[in-house]
C-alpha cells in the first residue's frame, strides 16, 4: 500500500511540474512563489526541529558505546568509539557524519538450516554512502547555476567528477552513482521482506522524490537539453531576490519545471519527514556526548530538590553531645 501511495504522490507532483511548464499562469506560481515558500519552510522547519530536540534534558552521558571507556592507566581506552574528551567526541561525530560508522556495523539476520545466523552486510552502508556523497557533490556542483561568479570549488569538483572523460557532455561519476545507489535503496525495500514489512509511505516517497530529481537532472544534462543560460539567469534571480520576467520564464522547458518542482517539494517535505536526519545526526546522544560520567557530575534535571543535612551541619548541631559521649569530631569548635 505504501508504495502505491508514494508512487501516486510522486506522479502527481511530476504532472503538476509538467503542467506548470506549459501553462504561463502556473509557471509563475511554481517558478517564482513556490521556491521562496520552499526555502522558508526548509530553513525555518529545520531550525524548529533542531531546537525541539535541543530542549530535551541531558541527564547523563549514554555510555553504551562500542569501545573500552577511559579507566585505569594500564587499560587501553578506545578513544574514538568511547571518547572522554571533546576532541575524541569530535572525531567520533566526524566518522559518523562523514562515513556512517554506525551503519558500517550493520548485520544481516537470516535462517540457515533452521538456525538464526547474523552475518556481515556492508551493502547498505556502501550504497547509502555512495548516495549521500553523490548528492552532496551534485548539490555543490549546482553552484554553477546558483551564483555568479561561480565559486572556486565547482571547477575542481567537475574535473574530479568527470575524470574519465566519457561522452559529451562528460558523464559524471556521481550521476551514475546516485542513480545506482537510489535504485539499490529502493529495490531493497521491495525485495527484502524484512525491510518491506516495516516500510511506510514516508520511506518510499523520499526515495522516489530524489529519484525523480536525479532522473530529470540526468535527462536534461545528457539527453533532452534545456536552455542552460536561461536556467542560470532564473536561478540567480531567485537567489538574489531579483524580479523575473515572463520572457525568462517562457524559456524554461517543462522538463526543467518538473525537476524544479521536485526540488521545491523536497525542500518543503524535508523538515517534516525522516529526511531531517540531516540535522538529527548531529543531535545523536550516543555519538555527541563524551563519556565523562566518572569525571564530571551530571545532574539529572528532573530530580526533586531534596533537603539535605550535611555532616558538617550535623556535627555543628550535635558537637557538644558528641564530645560528651567521647565521639571524635572533625572540628573542635
Amino acid at each position: 500500500m505504501g508504495i502505491q501511495l508514494s508512487l501516486l504522490v510522486t506522479v502527481v507532483i511530476l504532472l503538476a511540474g509538467w503542467v506548470a511548464g506549459v501553462l504561463p499562469f502556473l509557471k509563475f506560481i511554481f517558478g517564482v512563489i513556490l521556491p521562496y515558500v520552499a526555502l522558508a519552510v526548509f530553513a525555518i522547519g529545520l531550525i524548529v526541529r533542531v531546537l525541539r530536540w535541543a530542549r530535551s534534558p541531558v541527564p547523563f552521558r549514554i555510555t553504551t558505546t562500542c569501545g573500552q571507556e577511559k579507566s585505569l592507566p594500564w587499560i587501553k581506552q578506545n578513544k574514538l568509539d568511547n571518547p572522554s574528551s571533546a576532541l575524541g567526541t569530535l572525531g567520533r561525530m566526524a566518522l559518523e557524519v562523514l562515513f556512517f560508522r554506525s551503519l558500517f556495523r550493520n548485520t544481516k539476520a537470516s535462517l540457515k538450516d533452521d538456525r538464526l545466523v547474523y552475518s556481515v552486510d556492508k551493502w547498505l552502508w556502501f550504497f547509502s554512502l555512495a548516495f549521500h556523497w553523490s548528492f552532496l557533490i551534485i548539490f555543490l556542483r549546482h553552484f554553477r547555476f546558483f551564483t555568479e561568479p561561480i565559486p572556486f570549488f565547482v571547477g575542481f569538483l567537475q574535473d574530479i567528477d568527470g575524470f574519465f572523460q566519457v561522452g559529451l557532455p562528460i558523464i559524471y561519476i556521481t550521476d551514475v552513482a546516485i542513480l545506482v545507489a537510489l535504485t539499490y535503496l529502493f529495490l531493497r525495500r521491495i525485495f527484502n521482506a524484512k525491510v518491506r514489512i516495516v516500510s511506510l509511505p514516508s520511506d518510499y516517497f523520499p526515495l522516489l522524490l530524489i529519484l525523480g530529481i536525479a532522473v530529470t537532472g540526468v535527462l536534461m544534462r545528457y539527453f533532452l537539453k534545456t536552455d542552460l543560460v536561461a536556467v542560470k539567469e532564473f536561478a540567480v534571480s531567485i537567489l538574489s531576490f531579483q524580479p523575473i520576467s515572463n520572457e525568462l520564464l517562457n524559456k524554461l522547458s517543462p522538463l526543467f519545471m518538473i525537476h524544479f518542482t521536485f526540488v521545491c517539494t523536497l525542500l518543503i517535505y524535508f523538515p517534516m519527514s525522516k529526511l531531517v536526519h540531516l540535522g538529527g545526526i548531529f543531535m545523536s546522544p550516543t555519538r555527541n556526548l563524551a563519556n565523562n560520567n566518572r569525571m564530571k557530575r551530571h545532574i539529572n534535571p528532573w530530580n526533586p530538590v531534596v533537603a539535605v543535612h550535611t555532616y558538617e551541619e550535623y556535627e555543628d548541631e550535635f558537637r557538644e553531645k558528641m564530645k560528651a559521649a567521647g565521639i571524635p569530631v572533625e572540628k573542635e569548635e
Binding site: 530553513a43 553552484f143 551564483t147 561568479p149 537567489l239
Partner: peptide, 22 residues
C-alpha cells in the same frame, strides 16, 4: 551548529547578494 548549517544551505544567496556580478 544551526547557524553554520543554515549559512551552508543559503550560501548561494549570500554569494549572489555580495557580488555585483550576479
Amino acid at each position: 551548529g544551526i547557524v553554520i548549517g543554515i549559512a551552508f544551505f543559503t550560501m548561494p544567496i549570500w554569494l549572489n547578494l555580495s557580488s555585483a556580478q550576479s
